[in-house]
Design a protein around this nucleic acid. Structure first.
Lengths: 97, 97
DNA sequence: CATCATAGTATCGCTTAATGATATTGAAAG
DNA sequence: CTTTCAATATCATTAAGCGATACTATGATG
């Protein structure tokens, strides 16, 4: 029941965090786990790739502690999508809550 | 983007409406369309069946205008699930909005 | 009565998405 | 130049969503 809703939200959450700063795969997984939700790598990475491919996120590779990390940051298009989504989500949620 | 979120919400919306009164398949489809979302019959009916099977909804068949309608109403378990879900949704949404 | 039209529900075959498990990558350490 | 490790990537499987199409009463028509 909640899993379903959470999954619908995951793209928005990713955009949201990528709007506040740079994010990368494992960080997101941890962040979500902290909030009581978890997501498989096999689900997350394809989502990141598609968000990037569709132009909502842009990527930057950096070596951290000798490991390559792919940092993502929101794009202009991503910000727009996020702002457009907010009122719709609000409407969707307020009817029920 | 929004479709995904909407789909995650559909079970909650169904429970919500089944809490306010009796609902049936076509009515839900119309209601959602009115709000700018649409759902295929091939998606909706399996959802109704599973919500019933899992005990969130109970069914009552009635003939209306010479056609059989399956009215659904929320159960005690459904009400509980709905009430439990609300704060979690709120938390999930408020972080982003 | 037979058959027709119709609202509503049900299901099939296909496509797309999520998942856990497993593999790959590349820098650093030794 | 091998090993180790965090992080990312992909594979095979399972589950979910979908449009299209079929099914099921029932009341109307003649």
């Amino acid at each position: 029941m909640m899993r379903n809703i959470f999954l619908g939200f995951i793209r928005i959450h990713i955009l949201h965090h990528a709007n506040e700063g740079e994010i990368f795969g494992v960080w997101i997984m941890d962040e979500l786990r902290r909030h009581g939700y978890s997501i498989s790598a096999g689900t997350l990475y394809p989502i990141l790739h598609s968000l990037e491919k569709e132009g909502y996120l842009k990527r930057r590779d950096e070596v951290v502690n000798g490991k390559v990390r792919k940092y993502y940051r929101i794009t202009e298009k991503g910000v727009n999508a996020l702002e457009e989504a907010k009122p719709k989500i609000k409407e969707l949620v307020e009817e029920v809550i």
